[in-house]
Simulated assay, not measured.
Amino acid sequence: MASSHCLTSSGSECNQRPGAVDERKRKRMESNRESARRSRMRKQKQVEDLLGQVSQLQNANSQIALGINATTQKYVEIESANNVLRAQWMELTDRLWSLNSVLQVVEAVSGLAVDIPEIPDPLMKPWQLPCSIQPITTSADMLQL
């Protein structure tokens, strides 16, 4: 069995006594165990750090989702109000057409010149408003998340 020790090393262990070889082996095993323990601790800390990151990212994701939902709700409310205004504008345009028709009849019957305003066709040029452009003001918290 001593010859196997001589074959596995460069021959330096053959000259040492068996107790010294066992002591070196024991120290190496102890060093390996300590290294493995430190490695496990590093891995455990890394996993804990990653779990902390996951938690932070999930919280951030939840906040973003809440912001998106609030913004979507505001958008739906504004779109609904816009649809109401669009319908009212169309109704008022129809009334104005009717009133202009009455004015044309009055003008034709009375012979007096009546100033009849031109009504823009909303379908032909929807970006042109029939009234002067007024600035639209809003509060800063209207679009806050």
Rank of each mutant, 00 (worst) to 15 (best):
A2R: 15
S4G: 10
H5L: 14
C6K: 13
T8Q: 12
S9H: 14
S12Y: 10
N15E: 15
Q16M: 12
P18T: 14
V21D: 08
V21G: 05
D22P: 00
R24I: 13
R28M: 11
R28V: 13
N32L: 14
S35C: 12
A36Q: 09
R37S: 08
S39L: 09
S39K: 06
M41H: 03
R42L: 07
K43G: 03
K43Q: 14
Q44W: 08
Q46M: 05
V47W: 08
V47L: 12
E48C: 01
E48P: 01
L50P: 03
G52I: 01
Q53V: 03
Q53K: 10
Q53M: 04
V54K: 15
V54F: 12
S55Q: 14
S55F: 10
Q56V: 00
L57V: 07
Q58V: 06
A60C: 11
A60K: 15
A60W: 08
N61E: 02
I64N: 10
A65G: 04
G67P: 02
G67W: 00
I68Y: 11
I68T: 13
A70G: 01
T71W: 02
T72L: 05
E77R: 02
E77C: 06
N83L: 05
A87I: 04
Q88I: 05
M90S: 12
E91V: 06
L92S: 11
T93N: 06
D94V: 05
R95W: 01
L96M: 04
L96T: 02
S98L: 04
S101E: 08
S101K: 06
V102P: 01
V102K: 09
Q104R: 15
V109N: 08
S110M: 09
S110W: 07
G111S: 04
L112I: 14
A113P: 09
A113M: 07
I116A: 09
P117L: 03
P117Y: 01
P120E: 04
D121E: 03
D121V: 01
D121W: 00
L123R: 09
M124D: 13
K125T: 14
P126R: 00
L129F: 01
P135Y: 02
T138P: 05
T138F: 00
S139K: 05
S139G: 01
D141A: 07
M142W: 01
M142D: 08
L143C: 07
L145M: 08
